[in-house]
């Protein structure tokens, strides 16, 4: 059939659209390389709560990164032979912060506040995944607008007006 080209074109378009959709959905969740081989798993298994090191999500927009002082509070005595810990100690002595690479980063034009999210009954794992099982922390979800909206739009009628409003996150 000479009309093959039409059908071929149609198939090409369909395949193109599907491939595009898949490619945008597929996300490589590679963990960034941190300056110090810190393991969340070791610390969580030792019984430390999230809020011990990241103290402020309940009362401020940011969760907070522990200071080197806080690390040294324990590591003055724990596992001091470990070369990684010695590296932390050297940061402590030089008085410089550890240049951690941020894993869960929102762009400048997104206003994110931990406080109302925790106030609404979410917990850390909802968005950050089971960090306690991760040796190296990585993102478990692609934190894009569609992901935020998935929650914000499925709210009760009196809330959705505010939560699905653009000004909820963009100011």
């Amino acid at each position: 059939m000479k009309r093959f080209w039409l059908i071929g074109l149609f198939i090409l378009v369909v395949v193109g659209v599907i491939a595009g959709v898949i490619l945008t959905r597929v996300q490589v969740y590679a963990a960034p390389e941190q300056p110090i081989a810190y393991s969340h798993q070791v610390h969580v298994e030792a019984g430390i709560q999230c809020l011990f090191c990241h103290p402020s999500p309940l009362k401020s927009p940011l969760a907070g990164i522990p200071s080197v002082q806080k690390c040294m509070g324990c590591h003055n005595v724990i596992d001091t032979d470990n070369p990684e810990i010695q590296q932390v100690a050297s940061y402590y002595e030089s008085g410089e912060p550890i240049p951690w690479i941020r894993v869960n980063l929102q762009p400048d034009f997104v206003y994110f506040n931990h406080q109302p999210h925790l106030g609404a009954g979410l917990n850390c794992e909802t968005c950050h995944g089971d960090v306690g099982q991760m040796d190296v922390t990585r993102q478990t979800v692609k934190m894009d607008m569609g992901w935020c909206l998935d929650c914000h739009i499925n709210q009760s009628d009196e809330k959705v007006g505010r939560l699905a409003d653009c000004l909820a996150c963009h100011k």
Binding site: P107, G161, D165, C166, L167, H170
Partner: peptide, 18 residues
């Protein structure tokens, strides 16, 4: 593109990144 629109509380919003 709806970069500017009306919010339920009567604000004339301007969404910069849109």
């Amino acid at each position: 593109v709806f970069a500017t629109y009306h919010t339920p509380e009567g604000l004339n919003a301007q969404i910069y990144n849109r």
